[in-house]
């Protein structure tokens, strides 16, 4: 009996979904796992979303939506027909194994990658490709999976840089240093100091950011994103490579930031355990498809999620396993 780590067998999911969701049409038990995986998984993978919406009518507005987004790199599909709707003020976690397309979602939302098909709806505006240079002004801030700080600047200056989108003064005005330029400078510094204090980085604010340990750099990146006062905060693996204590701290900061600034948070995480207590909803991705969406408790019970994370016994899967 061999374990397949990422639950690669698509046939198992479609079968499992008929078992897990009562309303899903039954009667496709004979699907062989080695048949055309795409054809099988597609309708099944989409089903939970509609189920979820039916169970919980649209009580809160969507601030961010992905509609039918597909993205591929040289023929390898990173995202396939992804629909995702993020509600105002929630913490939505996107989880999935390596190569599930989690980071691609954030990169599509922030305009780093243009999707092949589909669009992103941001504050009621529809974008084929989100204009990256306007992203901050649209109220979206993000962090990166691998740090994207400015190592040549101090912690304070990195955070102040997060206010770049608010600068209206020309460089001549900044040279002169009074009027509008002065107001902007003081305002940016004050807000940066606030956020730095909020994230307990004050003692380090004059340090060059490149000299800080990794966990703290991650926190500085969060500060740089928060200082922009975003409506939507995209965090790409904010806890990657952290110790358990650091992860808990970071989770605390993310929740505190949402509570204090009312920011909607979309959070990518590799580790399923961390997000369960942190998030309002969890979307699970595997192989570029959304395989589940719901509260952490719902998702945890979802058979396909269990399969994707824990692996499926291939023998069972091929035989009587489907009939569960």
């Amino acid at each position: 009996m061999t374990l397949v780590l990422t639950g690669a067998s698509a046939g198992a999911w479609s079968a499992a979904s008929t078992a897990a969701f009562e309303t899903a049409p039954r009667g496709r038990p004979g699907l062989a796992p080695d048949a055309d995986a795409d054809a099988q998984v597609h309708p099944a993978a989409k089903r939970p979303a509609s189920l979820y919406r039916a169970a919980e009518p649209e009580t809160s507005e969507a601030v961010l939506e992905l509609v039918g987004v597909s993205l591929s790199f040289g023929g390898v599909a990173a995202l396939s027909e992804v629909d995702l709707s993020v509600r105002r003020g929630e913490i939505l976690a996107i989880i999935g194994p390596n190569g599930a397309g989690k980071s691609s979602i954030v990169n599509v939302i922030s305009g780093v990658y243009p999707p092949d098909r589909g669009h992103v709806r941001l504050k009621g505006q529809r974008y084929g490709q989100v204009p990256t240079q306007k992203l901050a002004r649209l109220g979206v801030a993000r962090t990166f999976q691998n740090l994207a700080l400015f190592p040549g600047l101090s912690v304070l200056d990195n955070v102040v840089a997060g206010r770049a989108h608010r600068a209206r003064s020309s460089f001549i005005e900044q040279l002169a240093g009074f009027g509008r330029a002065k107001r902007e400078r003081l305002d940016a510094r004050e807000r940066a100091a606030d956020v730095i204090d909020f994230l307990q980085l004050s003692p380090l604010s004059e340090r060059l950011v490149g000299t800080l340990p990794y966990g703290l750099q991650k926190r500085v990146e969060l500060a740089r994103a928060l200082v922009a006062e975003p409506d939507i905060l995209l965090l790409d693996e904010p806890m990657a490579g952290m110790t358990a204590t650091e992860k808990n701290e970071m989770a605390g900061f993310v929740t505190a930031a949402r509570d204090r600034f009312g920011t909607t948070v979309v959070l990518i995480e590799h580790d399923i355990g961390v997000v369960m207590s942190l998030s309002d909803r969890v979307a699970v991705f595997d192989h570029g498809r959304r395989i589940a969406l719901g509260t952490p408790a719902e998702v945890q019970r979802d058979q396909r999620v269990i399969d994707a994370y824990l692996g499926v016994a291939e023998d069972e899967n091929a035989g009587e396993g489907e009939e569960l």
Partner: peptide
């Protein structure tokens, strides 16, 4: 100044610079 910070931001990480505006 802010402009100088923008210079360094573009030098250190162009994508991040673009994303913060």
């Amino acid at each position: 100044s802010q402009t100088g910070r923008n210079f360094i931001a573009v030098r250190d990480n162009e994508t991040a610079a673009r994303i913060i505006g």
